[in-house]
Design a protein around this nucleic acid. Sequence first.
DNA 1: TATCTGATTTCCT
DNA 2: GGAAATCAGATAG
Length: 205
Amino acid sequence: MGGRPFDRRVLARDAVEVAPRLLGSLLTHRTTEGSVTVRLTEVEAYRGDGQDPGSHAFRGMTPRNAVMFDEPGHLYAYFTYGMHTCVNVVCSPAGSASAVLLRAGEVVSGVELARERRTSARNDRDLARGPARLTVALGLTLADNGSDPFAAPFELTARSGQPAISSGPRVGVSGAGGGAAYPWRFWVTDDPTVSIYRRHRAASD
DNA sequence: TATCTGATTTCCT
DNA sequence: GGAAATCAGATAG
């Protein structure tokens, strides 16, 4: 790796500020099988202060999203669509419940292990191209909900340079939370591993 | 190559 | 009981 650790204090800010700073960072997860490292290329910010209808925390704390209300720097893993697990990094001070959804990344280390976990991926580019795929590639499950990405078996490394960043409407957020009113999706400009699911399922009216 | 639809569990109302 | 921060496979062009 060679990089320095990601500054945990950055996560005390609002998710909308944290999200672009996470782009390009390296997230490593070690298991008995080995370790996989992903360079984050796409993220989404979710606010939990009641201003964001797309957030799981919009209606207040529930057993599922309780981790979002915890201190910054935890992982929030949730299950959706009956078969997929997605992972967020919790931001902002305890009580405000904002988080950054990790939407896509590039596997930069442990590629072979990631391939075993993602047998349906046709090429290495698809290994972590999408929120649920990224979760699988890293070997994360619901059991990792509440984990600390700054402690073993995790490692969060700051990016070395300043990537070109684009932003736009969030994906997959239905109802009032979608659309141009909340341009809180951030990605590394022109990166091939940015997810492609943004065509159909446009914000319904 | 681009677009569309079914799958399937968890949590919340 | 229904919706959900999605994915992979099938079908059409």
